[in-house]
Computed example of a mutant assay.
Amino acid sequence: MLFDTHVHLNAEQFTEDRDEVIKRAYETGVKYMVVVGFDRETIPLAIEIAEQHQNIYAAVGWHPVDAIDMTDEELNWIEELSSHPKVVAIGEMGLDYHWDKSPKDVQKDVFRKQIRLAKKVNMPIIIHNREATEDIIEILQEEDAKQIGGIMHCYNDSVDYVQTCLDMNFYISLGGTVTFKNAPLPKEVAINVPLDRLLIETDAPFLAPHPNRGKRNEPAYVKLVAEKVAELREMDVEEIGKITTENALSFFKIS
């Protein structure tokens, strides 16, 4: 039994065969998924997909790359959607210093606003971090995000930051990069994260794990992530699946 905690089934890459992709995931042992919406187009579709499938849930937030497009109207909209019975988290949110569409100060402002919103509605948050670790940690600490906790989505940072994240009441989620031959950091993290704070994901259609690297990712491939983590920790894949699924159910408050 597996839980893909971060998937974009609402992406255009799945328009033609979404139902088949979901069916393959179920057949591979993926029982639960969270579809993440991050802008005007993807948020409604995330909720629509969640409404259509019993064990699929949604997260709603605003991506840092598009922070410049976010207004108070969008923030109010996300607040309204947070009360939907299938919405289980606010995000993804955070900072992305790789792309230059949204200035850093705008990203930080939108990030802080979403953390405050999540605290207001008492929901956990999902963090997108690209080349911005120090600033993200600083903002999470200043905004006291520990109150609600969250997920460090697709964690690809040094193991040195893991304890700081744990101290802030965050879980560490590993994706396809843990299977990449040239990616030592997520492997080290996979070995060192406490089992009760470990999650797995695909971030599909992005970051497909080995041996599918470079192709379209899909939620069925979360099994490859679980297998690599199990190998690194010298555990049975079934046990990793059980632990990470129980962690996710607890985190998202899914009974």
Rank of each mutant, 00 (worst) to 15 (best):
F3E: 09
D4N: 04
H6N: 08
H8P: 01
N10A: 07
F14Q: 12
F14P: 10
E16H: 12
E16V: 08
D17M: 04
R18Q: 12
E20N: 13
E20P: 05
I22S: 09
A25L: 10
Y26L: 12
E27A: 15
K31E: 15
Y32D: 05
R40S: 09
P44R: 09
I47R: 10
I49L: 09
H53W: 11
Q54Y: 12
I56H: 02
I56T: 10
I56W: 10
G61D: 01
H63D: 05
H63M: 04
V65E: 13
I68G: 05
I68P: 02
E73S: 13
E73H: 10
L75N: 05
L75E: 02
N76Q: 07
S82R: 03
S83W: 03
S83T: 14
H84N: 02
V87M: 03
V87Y: 00
A89T: 03
M93T: 15
Y97H: 06
H98D: 12
H98S: 11
K104C: 06
V106P: 07
K108P: 02
K108S: 01
K108I: 06
V110A: 12
F111V: 01
Q114M: 03
A118I: 00
V121Y: 01
I126N: 07
H128M: 07
H128Q: 07
R130V: 08
T133V: 08
I137Q: 12
I137P: 05
E138H: 13
D144T: 03
D144P: 02
A145W: 06
I151E: 05
H153A: 03
Y155T: 05
N156R: 11
D160S: 15
V162M: 14
L166C: 07
M168L: 15
M168G: 06
V178L: 00
V178R: 00
T179A: 01
T179I: 02
K181Y: 11
K181F: 07
N182V: 04
N182C: 05
P186L: 01
K187N: 10
V189C: 01
A190K: 04
A190F: 01
L198D: 04
L198K: 08
D203E: 12
A204L: 03
A208S: 10
P209W: 02
R213N: 03
G214A: 12
G214K: 08
R216A: 00
P219W: 03
A220H: 08
E227A: 15
K228V: 05
R233G: 00
R233Q: 00
E234V: 09
E234L: 05
E238S: 15
I240K: 14
I240W: 13
G241R: 14
G241T: 14
I243S: 11
A248P: 01
S250C: 11
F251Y: 14
F252K: 05
K253Q: 15
